[in-house]
């Protein structure tokens, strides 16, 4: 941190992060972008998700990434969370699988169970 410009940039970055957190009520898709994910094709998977969402005018979905979660053999990994529902983690998601996950799960609300490698209960379910 050296100058006023650095402070301005930090402020802007923090505001963006707050804005994204505020939007956490929106559907959320997270793609594994560690070295293992990138080498396995996560970029193409993410581009396919973005393309499919844009085609279907679903610009309310929060798109994010995460690092290696230790399940490298199943990369590219994609997590999908709909508000109030469990998070479904999909494994070995190539672009064509990604397009179907967008359509079936994100848009029609039906998880593609045969590709799921893990299901994480929603915070409300954990409280029960």
């Amino acid at each position: 941190m050296k100058s006023r410009q650095d402070l301005e940039r930090l402020k802007e970055k923090t505001l963006e992060e707050i804005r994204l957190r505020m939007a956490s009520g929106a559907p959320r898709v997270v793609v594994g972008m560690g070295t293992c994910g990138i080498a396995a094709g996560a970029r193409e998977t993410l581009l396919a998700i973005m393309d499919e969402l844009k085609k279907r005018r679903r610009t309310d979905v929060t798109i994010s990434e995460t690092g290696c979660v230790g399940l490298c053999a199943k990369e590219p990994l994609v997590e999908v969370t709909l508000p109030g529902q469990p998070t479904v983690v999909y494994g070995n998601v190539d672009p064509s699988k990604a397009r179907r996950i967008v359509l079936d799960h994100l848009i029609n609300g039906q998880p593609v169970t045969e590709w799921a490698v893990n299901v994480i209960p929603s915070p409300k379910e954990k409280e029960k």
Partner: peptide, 18 residues
């Protein structure tokens, strides 16, 4: 390779980074 696609994914996932 796909440099524009690479930068697109980075910009999408990190909106707070210039």
């Amino acid at each position: 390779g796909d440099i524009p696609g690479t930068l697109q994914t980075f910009v999408m996932c990190h909106p707070g980074i210039e």
